[in-house]
Design a protein around this nucleic acid. Sequence first.
DNA 1: CTGAAAGCGCTTACAG
DNA 2: CTGAAAGCGCTTACAG
Lengths: 338, 338
Amino acid sequence: MSATGRPTSRDVAHEAGVSQSTVSLVLGGKAAGRVSPATAQAVRDAAERLGYRPNLAARNLRLGSTRTVLLIVPTLTAPFFGEVYRGAARVAAEHGFGIVAYPWPDDAGPADSPFAAPHEAIDGIIASSLATDVASEFRDTPVVMLDSDPAGDGSDHPVPTVVFDVANGMRAVAAHLAELGHRRIGHVAASIDQWTFHARGEALATAVKALPGGSYTRASGALEVGSARDAAGLLLDGPDRPTALVCDDDLIAAGAYKAARARGLDVPGDLSVTGFDDVQLATALEPELTTVRLPAEGLGAEGMTSLLALLKGGDPRPSPLPGELVVRGSTARPRTSG
Amino acid sequence: MSATGRPTSRDVAHEAGVSQSTVSLVLGGKAAGRVSPATAQAVRDAAERLGYRPNLAARNLRLGSTRTVLLIVPTLTAPFFGEVYRGAARVAAEHGFGIVAYPWPDDAGPADSPFAAPHEAIDGIIASSLATDVASEFRDTPVVMLDSDPAGDGSDHPVPTVVFDVANGMRAVAAHLAELGHRRIGHVAASIDQWTFHARGEALATAVKALPGGSYTRASGALEVGSARDAAGLLLDGPDRPTALVCDDDLIAAGAYKAARARGLDVPGDLSVTGFDDVQLATALEPELTTVRLPAEGLGAEGMTSLLALLKGGDPRPSPLPGELVVRGSTARPRTSG
DNA sequence: CTGAAAGCGCTTACAG
DNA sequence: CTGAAAGCGCTTACAG
């Protein structure tokens, strides 16, 4: 056995009384028709006795591939990214790949790029909800972007990008509110410079303004309850108070609830509120939140599928993933319909 | 340049007109006093021109260490684990280690153990909130457990374990409620077989029963809003309705809010409610939730510190991390004090 | 100050 | 059916 105490394939070979290459063949599953069943069994027994596990660094070096993909997310602290991971991991597992999650740049503390980290031994990258220009940091590593501007950074080397069809989701929200009779619609926006929020805002403004008698007002704040409450308050205290508040995100909707309650407004009696994403919070709130469910797991799965295609030399062009309006208790006809 | 297109240290050597070992010395930061500044600079320039990045599989194989630690968590979909990751990653980065997150067994889909995955090339494992007996799966890989039974599985080979002092947290909740005048206290428990929930329940029951006139009732449900609402409802509909509901978790408290509202009970006027964890939801609720803040980031940091000690051959015995009672709007004197 | 060489533990042609 | 050998790209004594 080696000095470190960890057995190698040589140790197994010695134990089984065969050559090291035979061990490799057997344990690599390439023994069929090349090694006698008895020998193969002896090798497996020896490996078992010694508690042998192959050294992956050696295998990776030899094969020039790690069958591992790095999933870069802005934070692990949002449930959304856990679902993205799950979807990517499922597809990866079906193809013998593993996924490693890497929060960057936020959670990691000292601004170390993924390539300062030891996980560099990877075949490809899925980057979620990051600015498009980070793709250039990855040099020649194949990369797929998630939830980013599909138009890319305008470079001549477009990166495959999987997005939600958030515009359509916002149009569904606007249509739902319009059907209930709402015309004065306030938008509590996230003041975050990300493609998805720009797309949400644009789609909503366009849809509301296209409504006969539609009026669109807007205030924005950080993606955080207190800030969202203040932004919603601005809209509620302004002239021509909106009868409905469309929020860029479920957490922002929680802030809108607080602003409403602080002013003695009942949701949905006096004010309808909608969210976006449909995270767990949406059903924890009272009343439960009308929102747009985004298939986060599907995003991860589609991202991994595209990356696999890319690794095979293909040129994937993923289509946007549709969201789904989920109507719950936070929307109703406006008291003074008009 | 190699056939794969990725430059190696040989390529850099050739470009710079030096030997491969000199390249390794320079780029490995071991050139001081051994390589002339001019040569060193030539090497760095050549590496830059070629876009050279070292092959980590080769380095790992040579060094026998990956300086990478696997963080195993039951799910990535809870914000709690994101914070654990952040704490562990911070300490790891300070020591030149990287952290790789691995959800297991839940999120990964097909029940593949961490050792079926390609990430096996690791130096150690931090396992959070898993059953203690999984530690035996890891054979000779150094492992530290987080948020698990500190007594271990009773084997002769105890695993270093970092926990929160949840018992003390529950005692603080009980003391807070007792001081407000509550005596009939209901416990909405999580029906999950994990050390932390057993410890929470035991500490609360003991503390309440020690109160003069104290009465403890209990109902349990899954860690999910609807199930928590039903469990809380059971307690509220029973004889001698409790004046306060102590919940095992913030999400369960959201369920308790719903049960109260469904019965026309005001929180905190008619019913005080407390949570545990202090996740984002706690301040998104209305009223904001009195709860116990658990230092999740500290748990990750302490776990990594213990693992580093273990890797150095030490015998770490981490102490429990204290929680902190955070009093907000969901607790008040009972209407009929006594 | 610099280079030739050994070797980490695998996989896979190749020879027998 | 089995084994000897090359080589993946590094790091690090060792020799000069």
